[in-house]
Each structure stands twice: as C-alpha cells, then as structure tokens.
Amino acid sequence: MRIGLNLLYLIPGIVGGTETYARGLLRGLRQIKPDHEFFLFVNRESDRLIADDDPDFSKVVCPVYAVNRKNRYHFEQIRLRRYVKQYKIDLLHSLAYTSPIFLSGPSIVSIPDLNFKAFGNSMPLSRRLMLRLIVRQAVIRSNKVITISNFSREEILGQYPVPAEKVVVTHLAADNNEVMETKSDDEPGDQNLPALTLPYAMAFSSSTANKNLSGLIRAFLEAKKKHHILQKLVLIGHQYPVENDIQGSYGYKDIIWTGYLERRNVLEILKRADFMIYPSFYEGFGLPVLEAMTVGVPVICSHAASIPEVAGDAGIYFDPFSIKDMALCIARVAKNQLLRRELREKGFKNLDRFSWQQTAAQTVAVYDEVLQNNSFRHSREGRNPVLLKNR
C-alpha cells in the first residue's frame, strides 16, 4: 500500500523535537523495511531531507515554504489533498499536530504533546487559536492519533472527545549512530567549540516558559553558594535575558552560554559533562534525557510530565517548582562520584527500552490496523477500495 508522510512542517535545524521524530522514524523504517511504498511530502526548505533517488522513499517537493506558517497551513488544508489523490495514497500520516481536515481517505496524525495549550501564552494569539482549531479537528477526524508518551496520551484523552483506543503511544529513541560518530576524548577538539574547563554540568538554554531556565539558574547558584559545588554550568544554546538579581549573584560567573552549536558539537560537550540537568515543567517526551544516557552522562531531572516515564530508575528527580529541592539534587550528584557512576550504568540499561526500529514497527502496526479497518468497512458497504481509488 502507498503511505504518505506529511512533513510540510519540517524546517531543518529549526523545529527541534519534531524533526528528530521524523528523522528517527525514517531511520527505523529503513531498518525494518515494511511492505509498503512511502511518499514523503516535503516543503522547499526540506528538499534535501532525502536524496532524489532514495531507494526506500519517494520524495514529493511541494511548492510551499514552511517558514510562512499561514501559507503552509493553507497549502496543507487545501492543496495537499490533491497531491494525495494524484499519487494514489492509501493512507496519510501527518507527523506534527496538523493534518488536512477534509481528506477523503484514511489518515493518522501525530500529536507529540499539548504544549500549545499548557504553555501557549508565549505564542501569538492568532497562532494559538489556529492551533487549537486545527489540532482539535485533526484529532477528531483522523482514524488514529499517535503520540510519544503515556503522559501525552492522557493529556489528549482529557482534552478531546475521542475513545481511548484511538490514541496510540510510540516512544522516541536516541540516535546511537550519532554517538559513534563523535570523536574519542583523546582526539583533537573542534576549533569551533568554546573553551570549557572541567568539571561542569550542562543543560539546554531556552526562552520557552516550560523549560524552566530561570529556575535552573537560581538552583545552580544556590548549590554553588550553600553547598560549594565545584562544577560550572554550561548552557548549550543562545543566552537569554535573566533577572537582574540573578546576574549579580555569587557563582554567576561560572555559568557559560555556548551560543548555537552544530549537532556534533553539542554531543562533544554533552559527553564531557559530569551530569546533565533537565528542569522542565512540561515535556511530551524528553529526548535529551536519553541522549545524555547514550553518551554515559548521569541525569538529574524534573519529576513533571513525561520525564519520569522516559528516565525510569536511571534519573535523580527533583520538584521543578522548588529551587531548594533542585539545588539539593544538584549538590547531591555533583559531590558524589560513586552515585554518578551508578546513574551512568543505570542509564545504559534504561536505553534498552527505546529504539527507532521499535518506533517504526509500532507505527507500521498502526498503519496496518487502519488500512485493514478501512478495507473491512468498504467490503461491508459493498465497495472495493482498490477499484474506487482507480476511478
């Protein structure tokens, strides 16, 4: 059967976790090689996502730029269904929140999380309202909804009037190939990497409210002042404004922002960290937790949302709303090398629960179920879906 993957949202290097999801799913599909033909509907920014002569996927470059959300939404809702018909797609899977509402054939939509509802106030009102409308219709009208954690599944079921069996979980995974491609510690460093003095802890810098950057900085400074930890804090990403009282605090000079880094360099810095801190209030999955474990870095993290589901027993948890609790956990791990070694080993074991091959296999099982149900429905109605499609 012909499966269409709607990747019109994907802007390489910009959309973050949903790009990782798409690339990981494609990698898993290559590994399991299901008995389906795959057509990737991409925008102009993503025309190099796969080669033109890729043996596993056919690429359809659509005349739209995703950077213009209004045009992309319009293309997806109005024009994409014509491409679906032209390429005789049996099932369309839209991988990021939205899908064509008035599609005539079977469809699946992936809803990684409901962050636009939980922390949507940072979005422009027009975009927030548009997402609320389109995502709701996508959830209701699609044959199945795929999400990436049991936490997100419960969120979706709590927000939309759909039966429980309609929402399916397929966990994400870390990319072990990326780790294997990074240099060993004794190889010469990348000249573009910032000069970092060991020891340090690391985290990701972000301006979005759910990432809890301000809380992390305050907790680190408290751990410095009250518990006298040796580690600096390396924040991967751009520097964002922080409150004035933070800038003058004891230990602030030990906070280092790297600025934007290429993916390879992110992993180089991550794997040299004593531990990673993941302080989010809200996540649909929490992929950096697995990425840290892949390179043998201990994780201390928030006990909120999906994060415990991902970290399992391999993380040290704190209350992200409590600066004191965060600081205590940071100090506990920073000062205990034996604990860090134990967390490292637990992290490696935790990774066994996740793989892109498993994600792909579970996704294909959803495809097969929807296609079988659609074929059964047509047969009961006295119609042959193959003949109908070729009219």
Rank of each mutant, 00 (worst) to 15 (best):
R2K: 15
G4Y: 11
L10S: 01
I11Q: 12
P12T: 02
G17M: 00
T18C: 09
L26R: 03
R30E: 10
K33D: 12
D35F: 04
F38Q: 11
F38D: 12
L40N: 01
R44H: 07
E45T: 00
E45Y: 12
E45G: 04
S46R: 02
I50V: 14
I50H: 00
I50E: 03
D52I: 01
P55K: 03
P55D: 04
F57Q: 03
P63H: 03
V64K: 02
A66I: 00
V67H: 03
K70N: 07
N71W: 13
N71L: 15
Q77C: 11
K85M: 07
Q86I: 10
Q86E: 11
K88C: 12
I89K: 04
S99I: 09
I101N: 06
I101G: 02
P106V: 00
V109I: 15
S110L: 06
K117L: 15
S122K: 06
L125S: 08
L131C: 05
N143T: 00
K144Y: 11
K144C: 01
S149Q: 09
E154W: 05
P161V: 10
P161S: 10
P163M: 03
A164S: 14
K166E: 09
V169S: 14
T170G: 06
H171M: 06
N176I: 15
E178F: 05
M180A: 14
M180F: 08
S184E: 10
D185V: 13
Q191D: 14
L198T: 06
Y200S: 05
Y200N: 05
S205W: 01
S205T: 02
T208N: 13
A209Y: 12
N210E: 13
F220L: 04
L221I: 11
L221W: 07
K224I: 01
K225C: 05
I229S: 02
Q231L: 00
K232I: 00
K232L: 00
L233F: 00
N244V: 13
D245F: 15
T258N: 02
R264A: 10
N265F: 09
V266T: 02
L270W: 01
Y278S: 07
P279E: 03
F281N: 02
F285D: 05
F285A: 07
E291V: 00
V297W: 09
A304H: 09
G312I: 09
I316A: 08
P320H: 06
P320K: 07
F321R: 09
K324Q: 04
C329A: 13
C329R: 15
A331F: 05
R332K: 15
L339Y: 07
R340N: 10
R340Y: 10
R341Y: 08
R344H: 13
R344C: 10
E345L: 15
K346I: 01
K346N: 06
K349N: 13
D352T: 04
D352F: 04
D352C: 01
R353W: 03
R353H: 10
S355F: 11
Q358N: 15
T359C: 15
A361T: 07
A361W: 08
T363E: 07
V364K: 01
Y367L: 08
D368A: 11
V370S: 07
V370Y: 07
V370Q: 05
N374A: 11
H378L: 13
S379R: 13
S379E: 14
R380N: 08
G382C: 10
N384V: 02
L387H: 06
L388F: 09
L388M: 14
